[in-house]
């Protein structure tokens, strides 16, 4: 048992099913999921498509309610979405009518913090994600990767207790995905925010996380948790090492079953 005071977010015995219209039986999506994450930890939830991992993230975020079970963040039961648990979606979901700067400022402005401070904080995060010079651009004028950078800045600027990321790089091309992974790791080294990272990409999970939770096919269930033993920073060449490919094969086998 890990000491409770450093546990940042936990989910106990989560069950969730969706009823299908016109059918008596309902579709069981999540079955008895137990999950916890420590402060500053980077944990990936890895699973095949359709295993319910996004549904699980939505429950952690407070967008959806579990049928049974309990989610708590920093000692408080999760009932609704909150900036404490900022989300980076698979698509950027920026507000298309706001410039990059105003998208990043959006959450800060809701907090009614001092105007001068807000401006500085927002621009420091825009710089951190490498979008300085693009403050006044609108989302539609940016590439997919740049939009996702802005979405990351928008979430991080709120200094969330946990950053929930739902396959954030899945729709990007290979090069952009790699540079976004590096960026996320750099930001994580700097701010040490807790990250729950949903992915179906085994290499991505191995390169990024401290710990991997493997989910089974539907109904989703965490079938194995394994710590990632590699020291950081992890260069791309790591993927060629024997230990890495053994671990990768092991995970792939677990995913197949």
């Amino acid at each position: 048992m890990k000491p409770l005071e450093s546990t940042n977010l936990f989910a106990n015995s989560i069950n969730k099913s969706f009823s299908t219209p016109g059918m008596d039986s309902s579709l069981e999506v999540l079955e008895d999921i137990w999950f916890h994450i420590m402060e500053g930890e980077f944990v990936s939830i890895l699973g095949p498509s359709g295993c319910g991992k996004s549904t699980f993230l939505n429950i952690l975020a407070g967008f959806e309610e579990p049928d049974s079970g309990h989610v708590a963040c920093c000692g408080e039961t999760v009932k609704a979405p909150s900036p404490q648990r900022a989300v980076v979606f698979q698509s950027p979901v920026l507000f298309p009518w706001l410039s990059v700067k105003n998208n990043v400022r959006y959450g800060l402005d809701l907090r009614k913090e001092g105007k001068k401070g807000t401006e500085d904080i927002a621009s420091s995060y825009i710089k951190a994600v490498g979008l300085d010079g693009f403050e006044d651009y609108y989302p539609s004028q940016l590439s997919g990767g740049m939009q996702q950078r802005a979405a990351m800045a928008r979430a991080l600027v709120l200094r969330p207790k946990v950053l929930l990321m739902d396959e954030p790089f899945a729709s990007l091309d290979a090069q952009t995905r790699y540079s976004m992974q590096q960026l996320l790791l750099r930001l994580w080294e700097e701010y040490r925010h807790t990250v729950v990272f949903i992915t179906h990409d085994v290499e991505e999970a191995l390169l990024m996380s401290d710990r991997i939770c493997i989910m089974s096919k539907r109904p989703g269930k965490i079938i194995e948790e394994l710590p990632v033993p590699f020291a950081r920073p992890r260069p791309l060449s790591l993927t060629g090492s024997r230990e890495f490919s053994m671990l990768k094969n092991h995970i792939l086998e677990r995913l197949m079953t």
């Binding site: 975020a61 407070g62 967008f63 609704a80 979405p81 909150s82 900036p83 648990r85 900022a86 989300v87 979606f89 698509s91 979901v93 920026l94 507000f95 959006y106 959450g107 809701l110 907090r111 928008r154 709120l158």
Partner: peptide, 20 residues
């Protein structure tokens, strides 16, 4: 999704209406 984004960034019902 835009509504989810607004809520997770801290918008209450009223703010969600006016800003999203």
């Amino acid at each position: 999704l835009l509504i989810r984004a607004g809520r997770m960034l801290g918008a209450n019902k009223m703010k969600l209406f006016t800003t999203v």
